[in-house]
């Protein structure tokens, strides 16, 4: 079985600085896969390269076995890869509804209104404030909207970059529950998290990224039990 997404020996450089040196991982259809690792390890760069915002220096990115590293960002989205970026990056001067409409920008089918309603059902607080500007919302609400916006393109693969950043524990739990629900509904998820404990707990598979390299991999529960992971990322010694 070929994986939905396969990244092989990826390296990405900003000028002379190599942020990603050798990252390899695979995401199977229907799985939740997380990339964990400390700040600056190259996780965000990896996601930005997959979604076409950055070009790799070397290595391959395969979506269903076909290379996508040379495609424009909008083409990659049309192929079914949505990216919910770090820091949420909502269009703060636009309303909730406009943000969701932009999420569905590439769609030409008639199901957009129904999908928007689904987001409002999932996050009622967004439904109540659909005409308000997104910039006025709290961090948790903005994260809900960012996830909802990414879902509006009906992606097969949803990439979430630090969805729990800056959120309260309750809100973090809420977001992770939502990720689990999305998986149950058939979406494949690639998760980047500093909150390694929570991320691995719900992941089918995890990869540790360190200094631009994937150094450890395994099923989420095994990595959770791995001493090296516990020492480095879970704050135990």
């Amino acid at each position: 079985m070929t994986a939905l997404l396969e990244v092989q020996n990826l390296s990405v450089a900003y000028g002379a600085i190599e942020a990603v040196r050798d990252v390899s991982f695979a995401v199977g259809e229907g799985q939740i896969v997380s990339l964990i690792g400390s700040n600056g390890a190259g996780k965000t760069t990896t996601l930005r390269t997959i979604s076409g915002l950055l070009r790799p220096k070397s290595g391959t990115i395969l979506l269903e076995g076909k290379p996508i590293a040379d495609l424009a960002a909008h083409t990659i989205l049309e192929r079914g890869v949505a990216h919910c970026p770090e820091g949420r990056r909502l269009f703060g001067r636009m309303t909730v509804e406009e943000n969701l409409q932009l999420g569905a920008y590439v769609r030409k089918d008639s199901g957009v209104a129904a999908d928007m309603q689904r987001v409002y059902d999932l996050f009622p607080v967004l439904g109540q404030r659909r005409t308000l500007k997104a910039g006025l919302f709290s961090g948790g609400e903005q994260q809900m909207l960012a996830i909802g916006r990414a879902m509006m393109s009906r992606p097969r693969l949803l990439m979430l970059d630090e969805p729990s950043m800056g959120l309260s524990p309750i809100m973090t739990q809420r977001i992770f529950d939502t990720i689990k629900e999305l998986q149950a509904a058939g979406t494949t998820i690639l998760l980047v998290e500093q909150n390694a404990l929570a991320a691995l707990a719900l992941s089918d598979r995890g990869y540790v990224v360190d200094l631009g390299r994937t150094t450890l991999e395994g099923p989420g529960h095994e990595l959770l039990a791995d001493e090296r992971v516990r020492a480095a990322y879970l704050g135990e010694d």
Partner: peptide, 10 residues
């Protein structure tokens, strides 16, 4: 408002 994020919207 945000060219990169607009690209992520397609």
């Amino acid at each position: 408002q945000d060219p990169d994020t607009a690209r992520l919207m397609g």
